[in-house]
C-alpha cells in the first residue's frame, strides 16, 4: 500500500512546530502502525533526513509508551488497542493519515510525537506508599479479598499510564488515569488503609499539573486501550468526598 503521512514535526519544546507530508511507499498491510513508521524513518535516514521521533517500547500493548493521535483519535480509534497493536490493514491504499502528539499543557512536546508524561509519575508519587508487612510470605487467604473487588481492582490495574485519556478528553483531564490508580489500590485491603490520604494527595497533584476537569463526555473511556470504565471516576469522586468531609489535608511537600 502507498500512503501519505501528515506528521507533526517539532524540534524541541520551544520550537512552534508544523505539519509535514511524507510518502509511505510499499507498506505491507500486516505491518503494525509503528512498523510502518520504522519503514518511513529508515528511508528518511537513508535520504539523510531527520527521522520522525516517536515513543515505543514493548510493541505488544502492555507498556504504555506509544502515544500517537492518528486521524484525530489517540491510538487510532480501535477498541482496546494501542498504536503499536494497530495494523495497516485498517487503512486503505492511497489514504492520508494525520499523526499528532498527545495535546495537553501537562504533556509538553519533547520532539515530534514524543511528549513528556512525567506529570503522571508525579501524580503516582503523590499517592505515597501502601502499608505492607515485611517478613515472611503471608499464608494464602489470610487476607480475604472479595472476588468482586479483586476483579474490579484488576480492571483498574490494567491502566498502562499511556495518557490516551488525557489526549482524547476535550478538557485534557487526567481523571480516568488518576481514578484508575485510586480505584485499583483502594479496592484491595492492603491499599484501603491509606485511601483517604492517597485520594486527597493525588487529586491535589493532578490539579497542580494543569490537567483539565471531567465533563463526563466519555471520550477517555472510548479510547482507553485497556477499556477502563468511567465508573472509576465516580468511585474516585466518592472517595474524595469522604476524605474531604473527614478533614483530610494534602501532605506538605
Amino acid at each position: 500500500m502507498n500512503l501519505t503521512l501528515t506528521v507533526w514535526r517539532q524540534k524541541n519544546a520551544s520550537d512552534p512546530g508544523r505539519f509535514e507530508n511524507y510518502a509511505a511507499k510499499d507498506i505491507i498491510p500486516d505491518m503494525s502502525f509503528l512498523e510502518m513508521l520504522d519503514v518511513v524513518n529508515d528511508r528518511l535516514v537513508a535520504e539523510g533526513r531527520e527521522p520522525i521521533a516517536f515513543d515505543s517500547d514493548c510493541r505488544e500493548g502492555i507498556c504504555g509508551a506509544c502515544s500517537c493521535v492518528i486521524n484525530g483519535v489517540p491510538h487510532g480509534g480501535h477498541r482496546g488497542t494501542t498504536a503499536c497493536q494497530l495494523h495497516m490493514r485498517h487503512f486503505k491504499d492511497g489514504d492520508t493519515i494525520v499523526i499528532e502528539p498527545w495535546r495537553a499543557k501537562a504533556f509538553p512536546v519533547i520532539r515530534d510525537l514524543v511528549t513528556d508524561r512525567s506529570a503522571f509519575d508525579r501524580v503516582i508519587q503523590a499517592g505515597g506508599f501502601v502499608s505492607v508487612n515485611t517478613g515472611g510470605t503471608p499464608d494464602a487467604n489470610c487476607l480475604p479479598v472479595p472476588k468482586e473487588n479483586a476483579d474490579l481492582a484488576m480492571d483498574a490495574a490494567q491502566c498502562i499510564g499511556c495518557g490516551a485519556c488525557v489526549a482524547a478528553c476535550k478538557n485534557a483531564s487526567a481523571m480516568l488515569f488518576v481514578s484508575a490508580k485510586i480505584g485499583h489500590l483502594g479496592l484491595l485491603p492492603q491499599g484501603a488503609v491509606e485511601q483517604e490520604r492517597r485520594v486527597i494527595n493525588m487529586v491535589a497533584q493532578m490539579d497542580a499539573e494543569g490537567f483539565g476537569n471531567c465533563t463526563v463526555t466519555g471520550s477517555c473511556e472510548a479510547v482507553c486501550p485497556k477499556e477502563i470504565s468511567l465508573n472509576f471516576i465516580s468511585r474516585m469522586n466518592r472517595d474524595y468526598a469522604v476524605a474531604l468531609l473527614k478533614g483530610r489535608q494534602p501532605d506538605r511537600k
Partner: peptide, 16 residues
C-alpha cells in the same frame, strides 16, 4: 488552559 494546542481540523471528541 489544559489544552493550549488543539488537534488538526479540530475533530469532534471521540464518543462525546
Amino acid at each position: 488552559a489544559a489544552r493550549p494546542v488543539g488537534y488538526r481540523n479540530s475533530p469532534a471528541p471521540v464518543a462525546a
